[in-house]
Design a protein around this nucleic acid. Sequence first.
DNA 1: TCAGAGAGTGTAAGCGGTTACATAATAGCT
DNA 2: AGCTATTATGTAACCGCTTACACTCTCTGA
Lengths: 332, 332
Amino acid sequence: MATIYEVSKLAGVSLATVSRVINNIDKVKPATRQKVLRAMEDLNYTPNSIAQSLASRRSNSIGVLIPELHGPFFGIMLSHIESELRDAGKHVMIMAGHSDEAKEKESLELLLSRNCDALILHVYSLTDEYLLNLSKGSVPIVLLNRLVAGMEDRCISLDNEHGGYIATKSLLELGHKSLAYISGPHWKVDSFKRIRGHKRALAEFGLEFDQRLMFEGTFEEESGKLGMEQLLQSGIPFTGVVCANDEMAAGAYNTTRKHGLKIPDDMSIIGYDDVAFARYLYPKLSSVTCHIDQMGLMAARSVLKYAYEKDNAAIQKAFKPSVMLRASVDKV
Amino acid sequence: MATIYEVSKLAGVSLATVSRVINNIDKVKPATRQKVLRAMEDLNYTPNSIAQSLASRRSNSIGVLIPELHGPFFGIMLSHIESELRDAGKHVMIMAGHSDEAKEKESLELLLSRNCDALILHVYSLTDEYLLNLSKGSVPIVLLNRLVAGMEDRCISLDNEHGGYIATKSLLELGHKSLAYISGPHWKVDSFKRIRGHKRALAEFGLEFDQRLMFEGTFEEESGKLGMEQLLQSGIPFTGVVCANDEMAAGAYNTTRKHGLKIPDDMSIIGYDDVAFARYLYPKLSSVTCHIDQMGLMAARSVLKYAYEKDNAAIQKAFKPSVMLRASVDKV
DNA sequence: TCAGAGAGTGTAAGCGGTTACATAATAGCT
DNA sequence: AGCTATTATGTAACCGCTTACACTCTCTGA
């Protein structure tokens, strides 16, 4: 790999001038610029971005820490973050935190030690306190799907309580009087809030929450199957089930059919997240759409604003999910 | 951020000694090591990996270039690459190439300029020649889902012709005599090879290939719908359809139902890739599984072998897809 | 007792750039 | 032409770390 030194020698100018040409800063006489470009071309030179980063204490790269690299949810988010930043000439360093405190911390430190200009964090295990403290450092951080007091302007958040509320409400409005709920792990704050919304909707319609119609799943398809199985066997009658994500809803479909029940005639089902495959299911799954593409986009824009002072695009911080009703639900 | 210099001053030793402690190389007297560790702790010091990388010309990071960040396929692959490498203390820099030559090249150069110790490339637009040339450079590269002559030992490849062959064959073995095919874009080599396998299976069973039963889709659900629509309207009778991926199969499900046909009674459908949601569909979608998890794993191991001389795990280079028959197909 | 070996540590020259500051070249004006 | 204000370029000190090499101490064994 050629270095800037070789370029400067070939072009007959100083290191500084080459650097100026590379970075397009300061004025360089057109003729000189040409000589340098020519030399760069001849040597097939690419600046070493590590060296640039060390010297300039900037890296043009944004660290992104998400729970997992797979899954329909994160992929979309990542994809939008990347394309927006790439269009702005920045690039992303992606790491997975696996919802594990040690790993999240380790990844975070690595991203920092790599001179990331900013960080987009979608983390579960790190505490509010830790994040708040981090946000006081010199590297701008943006939080995804989280709202931490004291740094609201850096949070792209989603109102999970509202999501749980509208999911349940949309079924109640169809006349359902008894609903089951398949939730995610209770310790996850997202799960917890959705449940709260569920209860609020029930209360609003004058219905009692029945603990026996609540199943705690894992967000995986298998637990949707299992949950539906247990709910049906409980003997408590219900005409609809609200699932805390689409995978579990897919599992619920499976069990429902196995019991000879028709969707939506005998059982209305609604999911959450509205991932791509919700529309592939038959009947098409109703779901709560979380605007993950938009959230990704806004995280990217926030970074452009806070880390690079590019303040030309509107930024939405707080998102409210909305319901997509499809063939999986019906009047009772 | 504290620097190595401050640590050395606080510990009362030289920079070199601190560096030795950090990297665990050479012998350092236990007492000295303690002093250094103590100082590091006190200053809450983390080595600046950019500087480490520049000085050592190594980065402990592997560049990964894939077509897209979203989609069920790439997510799984990425996920496996990342976890294997992470277990080995390495980390990944991920970029998306968007199947566009300019972007792929640009991303590649960025990864190189970031001192990546090795590269895992899943690219479509770069030519064999370019890749072969690249592989002669000093940075080890591993190719995913591609076989380039002259660098076979660096290729993790998948036999797409065979995949197309077994997909079709599995339907023919069930007694089908007339099959339609919904393919991906013909210019993509993967699509092309699968079609070739399809034709080979037909020939083997003494069946003529009928161009009118071939639809060129885009690998997206919508084109599966559209393709099935056109195929059904063509008037040529067929009892099964082979789809070049699962998304299009999902689309085909949709259209098939709309026409009042039952799956698998009236129409057998098989997909390709065997992504997660194939099992969520009803009836469960038969598919060709590509072992993408394994391919990701092997790519990671190859990197460990070629870039870090870790040669302890077996590496499989060539993969053959296999058929997963589920409820979406039946005897005719 | 002393040379030689080995262990432990320090010195200083990079790695490939950026950038404040100094200096040289040119342009603009009287 | 002469002087100043700009503009263009060069010089050299970093950025934070690694590492070849030199050096200083023990510790052996003859």
